[in-house]
């Protein structure tokens, strides 16, 4: 894995068929993401951020080009291999309604570990440590509808990192929370990146979020506009 980039997109296009109309969500897009990055996909609404995250997350397939994760071409993998890859190598945080409403915070956070068939006791131990990390240990037994939006996102982040994935993909993780909460969530992700070396790639169109990114990948109309790396 030494020199192989974590994520490679090679001339990727994604064209949606909408009736007779073809919508090019992403066009001829190339990107490399290295281990340990804290990068942001930014751009106006409809610029293709979600589409790109879905492609990297093995949730969607490109119309053209290749997507590689840890050097493996996703097009070569079958449905269950992809599911296994998502389970073991990728963490997801979505914009909202991330959590399963019938599970407690703790059960939500251990969902991926349960899918990995990790024994219950070990699961609990790891999850409680991570929930403490994100400041949710006290509220572990609550159901999502008993938590605020920000608290729900923390649980979602805990769920994304507890299985120690290669990369955490977050689609506008702060879009539905107030700015103070957004700052706290961002700080949490930054700290996890810094202390535990978790690779983050997230999308946003929030200027305050962009200010904290180490790398800004600017998108416009499904094309790369500018790739800006900061100190």
């Amino acid at each position: 894995m030494n020199n192989t980039p974590l994520v490679q997109l090679e001339n990727v296009s994604r064209i949606y068929q909408q009736g007779k109309l073809q919508v090019a969500a992403v066009t001829d897009f190339s990107l490399e993401v290295q281990c340990g990055e804290f990068s942001v996909l930014c751009g106006p609404s409809g610029s293709g951020k979600t589409t790109i995250l879905n492609l990297i997350g093995a949730l969607d397939e490109p119309s053209q080009g290749r997507v590689l994760l840890e050097g493996r071409d996703l097009a070569q993998l079958g449905r269950s291999d992809l599911a296994r890859l998502r389970r073991d190598r990728i963490g997801f945080v979505f914009q909202s309604y991330n959590l399963n409403p019938v599970l407690t915070a703790c059960e939500n956070a251990e969902f991926v570990l349960a899918l990995q068939n990790i024994p219950h006791a070990q699961r609990r131990q790891r999850v409680m440590a991570v929930l403490a990390e994100v400041g949710m240990a006290e509220l572990a037994e609550r159901r999502p509808d008993e938590l605020s939006g920000g608290q729900q996102q923390r649980v979602a982040i805990a769920r994304a990192i507890v299985s120690r994935p290669a990369i955490v993909l977050a689609d506008e993780p702060t879009a539905n929370v107030d700015s103070a909460t957004a700052a706290a969530i961002l700080e949490l992700m930054e700290r996890l990146n810094h202390e535990q070396g978790v690779t983050f790639l997230f999308s946003t169109h929030d200027q305050r979020v962009m200010d904290r990114a180490h790398r800004l990948i600017h998108l416009r109309d499904g094309r790369l506009e500018r790739d800006e790396v900061r100190g």
């Binding site: 997350g57 599911a83 899918l115 990995q116």
Partner: peptide, 16 residues
């Protein structure tokens, strides 16, 4: 549907 989508994104198999 969205719940199934999230569970599958997290790695749940279609069979599960």
């Amino acid at each position: 549907q969205r719940e199934f989508g999230i569970m599958m994104a997290l790695g749940m198999m279609p069979g599960q």
